[in-house]
Design a binder for these strands. Structure first.
Lengths: 144, 144
DNA sequence: TCTATTTCGGACAAGAATATCCTAAATTAT
DNA sequence: ATAATTTAGGATATTCTTGTCCGAAATAGA
């Protein structure tokens, strides 16, 4: 469904968010250990999240990554997905046609429409804060 | 959503189906022209469809590809998707966790559940015959 | 100021997906 | 039988994603 990068991006953001909740800044090491991801590759993921203003990065000793309270309240799952995979998943044609819409549909267009819209809606309404709270409360998990 | 191979696989199957409807066997050339796909790569796709008993292939002059009436009645979109991409799209965790279920959920588990199930249901109930009929009747399209 | 820590960013490596090429095998028609 | 047509399948090439490595830049603390 999502690329590996996007999966790591979501996990990393949620881990950072759940710690920023408690006022804790976390490092690359913390993150890659706690979301069970390759460290060097995760560094790239974090750079991307940082450039997309999804997370904030601080260099130097006691540096690391965090999410501002303001960001936390506005961030949605769709923002992360968009940064890594674009919005093809819920916008583009199920069998890859450039032009595919209600007036000139591909064979699967009508059957995919609802699902795509539901996915879009879910991603756009799911807040990072809510997901992070689930983690903080121990109701959900980022690794086995 | 699906791999390029899977997209070609669906398009090829539908093109063949819509022609088998009319009793016409179609060649690799026909197919790659009409679904707008690279010929050599499409040959591989057709081999895979053939090995998975989704389509039948006949060698030699006046050979080509077709779908038996029996197959046409039983084939569902899910069969093609499974042959190329497996069933990860509607079975595996949204952020790639090995173990992710109702009793030990990842943060997005509950929000993805319905969508995944709807997708599964759609793929398993959508018949190739119905999709092919839409094409034959000129209601839907495989290329722009 | 010096050192240790941490992120940044460019170059490079490995693997998977996509795509091509060429010869073999089968089959039809002459 | 021979020639022509069409799929089968192995080898190879290209591109994209995933992943690693290493030195540079920033910064906190001694």
């Amino acid at each position: 469904m999502f690329s590996k990068s996007c999966e790591y991006g979501i996990k990393a953001t949620l881990y950072i968010a759940s710690n920023s909740n408690n006022g804790n800044r976390v490092s690359l090491n913390d993150i890659s250990e706690n979301i069970d991801s390759p460290k060097a590759f995760t560094a790239k993921i974090l750079q991307k999240l940082s450039k997309n203003k999804i997370i904030q990065s601080i260099k130097g000793p006691s540096g690391g990554f965090e999410i501002t309270t303001e960001n936390m309240n506005n961030l949605r799952l769709s923002h992360i997905v968009k940064a890594f995979d674009g919005d093809d998943i819920y916008k583009s044609c199920g069998i890859g046609l450039e032009e595919c819409n209600d007036s000139k549909p591909c064979p699967v267009h009508s059957r995919f429409k609802n699902i795509r819209e539901e996915l879009k809606r879910m991603l756009e309404t799911t807040s990072i804060l809510d997901l992070a709270n689930g983690l903080t409360e121990g109701l959900t998990f980022l690794k086995h």
